[in-house]
Write a protein that binds this DNA or RNA. Structure first.
Lengths: 258, 258
DNA sequence: CTAATATGTTTGCCATTGAAAGACAAAGCC
DNA sequence: GGCTTTGTCTTTCAATGGCAAACATATTAG
């Protein structure tokens, strides 16, 4: 990639995100931070941006029409979910092919893997769209029928696409976790898709904040033992912690980071 | 191979890839790097490209329509395009199964069909998302590889999904319309998808504002006669109006509404 | 034959990048 | 507040490799 290309990509990112981070950019383009700083210097001399400690922000005097209240992209997410995203991000290695299930939990994972090099398979079109700009991330959308009022794709096309794909790690956000009912989600159609994913993935990782425990949603995905790793918060009820421990299932919680 | 031939091949490559690499080109044409640099010098003097350390990039000022810099999010839609959307909407009947191609033109069509009862097939995830909330609209997303920095799905999965679908009306937004080159779009991969759509659809409708006439984008979709209906503005060059009339192709323009 | 054009070769120069070192800023900690 | 620690920034230096200019060679047109 030429310097000029990198700089114009930085411009695009700035126009969209209004801010950039030196370290993120250096990972994104696989160059040292010094090089990124030199790029930012150049763009700063052009008046395009204003350098700050750790990165730069868009020069608003240059673009007065761009309002910075793009709530949709940087919507308020609980720190709980953000932490789940970070933990998941740490599990992902370079070159992985991962699956992200529909929902805000996996969206948060998506937001934390932008600077990695990997393949992401998803049946959530918003998750796909979120990752469209990052050169290291190859996005495959399964296709299918769009569920009303959501961004999830279901049905035969989704299923068939998954049948031809190999996944190393599948991150699945669930709506309910319960001893009796196991992992549950809202819709039967989702179970069909996720069931196929579970079959196809070398590793299944359940992601759910603590509010999902002791709840049962509509459709059963499977027994609590279908996943060998679970990501959640420290408020997980102790009987579940106990269960996971006894069944040799790794429970990752925010506790480890505090 | 003559110098001129080589240079026009370089132009073609640039239009497609937006960038060229001196060393790659010198290997490709079996000439020294000096020769390639001289070629690039000449094209730079013509304003076709901008030289950079190691190669050159397409001069985007020369080809503003080829730059795909996130038009979807923040560009206000011209009333021209809005009118195209309304005309298209009038063509759609209850119960139709239509296809919408990626791009802002078909997005505008999507915005005008929300109250109808129909099935929409698309390989643009933003168009799909736009229609997610409307009970009468069943949305099928083809799936596939997400093209970087766009919302278009391409590749094998997209193709395969289309093979099993029946479409009554396909609305296709094109980037260029020209007597010699026919209908053209930006990427070869798009042609594969749209070609399948054209095969599968009972009726093909080209949608393009008047700026697309007498222009040629990179990849040829087909002859001007592949569609029996075309939607555009009243500023369509008269020679094209004439051509469509003689070939019994219906040209719908905003004129009829004013 | 001569001039013009196209291409290759050589050479010294310079742009780009990364590594390293020290300056500087931010955030905690006593 | 002053201190340390951590992380970021700037500067300098060196290496790589691309670049331009001058010259050489070949091919073609007139």
């Amino acid at each position: 990639m030429f310097a000029i290309e990198r700089q114009s990509r930085i411009k695009e990112i700035l126009l969209k995100e209004k801010r950039v981070d030196v370290i993120e950019l250096s990972k994104m383009f696989s160059v040292t931070e010094v090089t990124i700083r030199r790029d930012l210097d150049k763009l700063a001399r052009e008046g395009f941006l204003i350098k700050t400690y750790g990165g730069a922000v868009l020069n608003k005097k240059q673009f007065p029409d761009l309002t910075d209240t793009d709530k949709s992209s940087q919507e308020e997410v609980s720190t709980e979910k953000q932490m789940i995203g970070k933990i998941a991000s740490n599990m992902i290695e370079e070159g992985d092919a991962i699956f992200l299930s529909p929902g805000t939990t996996c969206m948060e994972i998506a937001r934390n893997i932008k600077q990695k090099r990997l393949t992401v398979v998803t049946n959530d079109i918003l998750i796909g769209y979120e990752l469209r700009d990052y050169p290291g991330v190859k996005v495959i959308v399964t296709g299918g029928d769009l569920m009303h009022s959501t961004s999830a794709l279901i049905g035969g096309f989704a299923l068939r696409a998954l049948q031809d794909i190999y996944i190393s790690k599948a991150f699945i956000g669930v709506k309910g976790i319960h001893f009796n009912s196991g992992y549950t989600v809202d819709r039967h159609e989702e179970v069909m898709i996720l069931g196929e994913v579970i079959k196809k993935s070398r590793e299944v990782i359940i992601a759910a904040d603590y509010t999902k425990f002791n709840r049962t949603a509509f459709a059963r995905l499977g027994d609590l033992r279908i996943a060998k790793k679970v990501i959640s918060n420290k408020q997980v009820p102790s009987e579940y912690k106990q269960f996971y421990f006894e069944n040799n299932i790794k429970l990752y919680t925010t506790f480890e980071f505090e």
